[in-house]
Computed example of a mutant assay.
Amino acid sequence: MGTSLKNAVFLVESRLRDAARGSVQAYYELGMVFSSGAEGADVDLIEAHKWFNLAAMRGNARAQECRAEVAEDMSAREIAAAQKAARAWLQRSAIRAAA
């Protein structure tokens, strides 16, 4: 595994752990990773939109702007998939919190 890929995996895994604890900053940073391909991660606009959406829902104004920018390069079907993924994340988070 190349260094770049290792960095991407580490970054995403560490941010996902923080996101699971409800970190709005982690949501935003995951959106940045997936929208830009930071640290060698693959660009995935659906994932980026999902994370920006979650951060925006928690009041991150920059995430609102980034979500709109990403949406400009997405189809309606891709945006719907991102919104569905965000809802699923929220449902899983609620279940984890209740456990």
Results as ranks from 00 to 15, higher is better:
residue 1 M to T: 12
residue 29 E to N: 15
residue 3 T to K: 13
residue 47 E to V: 04
residue 91 Q to L: 14
residue 44 D to A: 10
residue 98 A to C: 03
residue 33 V to F: 03
residue 41 A to S: 11
residue 27 Y to H: 13
residue 18 D to A: 13
residue 64 Q to Y: 05
residue 53 N to K: 06
residue 3 T to Q: 11
residue 86 A to N: 02
residue 59 G to Y: 03
residue 99 A to V: 13
residue 1 M to E: 11
residue 56 A to V: 04
residue 29 E to D: 15
residue 66 C to P: 02
residue 8 A to M: 08
residue 84 K to Q: 09
residue 43 V to F: 08
residue 59 G to Q: 01
residue 42 D to W: 08
residue 45 L to W: 09
residue 67 R to P: 04
residue 22 G to L: 09
residue 14 S to A: 12
residue 33 V to W: 04
residue 63 A to F: 00
residue 84 K to S: 10
residue 41 A to N: 06
residue 6 K to Y: 01
residue 58 R to K: 06
residue 29 E to P: 01
residue 35 S to V: 00
residue 78 E to R: 09
residue 65 E to K: 11
residue 95 I to F: 06
residue 57 M to G: 14
residue 48 A to P: 03
residue 78 E to Y: 07
residue 94 A to T: 09
residue 83 Q to W: 04
residue 10 F to S: 12
residue 9 V to W: 04
residue 63 A to N: 00
residue 51 W to V: 02
residue 27 Y to F: 15
residue 65 E to H: 08
residue 9 V to P: 02
residue 88 A to I: 06
residue 16 L to K: 11
residue 38 A to L: 15
residue 33 V to Q: 06
residue 76 A to V: 15
residue 56 A to G: 06
residue 57 M to E: 15
residue 63 A to I: 05
residue 72 E to Y: 08
residue 87 R to M: 13
residue 98 A to N: 01
residue 78 E to K: 08
residue 7 N to H: 10
residue 93 S to G: 13
residue 46 I to R: 15
residue 89 W to H: 08
residue 82 A to D: 08
residue 15 R to G: 04
residue 98 A to H: 03
residue 76 A to G: 14
residue 90 L to R: 10
residue 11 L to V: 14
residue 82 A to Q: 06
residue 81 A to I: 01
residue 38 A to V: 10
residue 76 A to T: 10
residue 6 K to I: 10
residue 92 R to N: 10
residue 9 V to S: 06
residue 47 E to G: 05
residue 92 R to H: 11
residue 36 S to T: 13
residue 99 A to F: 07
residue 30 L to K: 03
residue 30 L to Q: 07
residue 23 S to G: 01
residue 75 S to A: 02
residue 27 Y to C: 00
residue 30 L to Y: 06
residue 49 H to R: 05
residue 71 A to P: 04
residue 80 A to N: 06
residue 62 R to K: 09
residue 6 K to E: 11
residue 55 A to H: 03
residue 71 A to W: 01
residue 10 F to Y: 12
residue 35 S to N: 07
residue 31 G to Q: 05
residue 72 E to F: 08
residue 46 I to W: 04
residue 2 G to N: 14
residue 13 E to F: 02
residue 10 F to V: 12
residue 13 E to K: 13
residue 13 E to M: 03
residue 73 D to V: 03
residue 38 A to E: 13
residue 28 Y to V: 02
residue 68 A to I: 04
residue 80 A to G: 02
residue 73 D to N: 15
residue 57 M to V: 04
residue 1 M to S: 14
residue 19 A to V: 10
residue 75 S to T: 15
residue 67 R to D: 02
residue 49 H to C: 00
residue 89 W to S: 00
residue 24 V to C: 06
residue 81 A to H: 07
residue 99 A to G: 13
residue 28 Y to G: 02
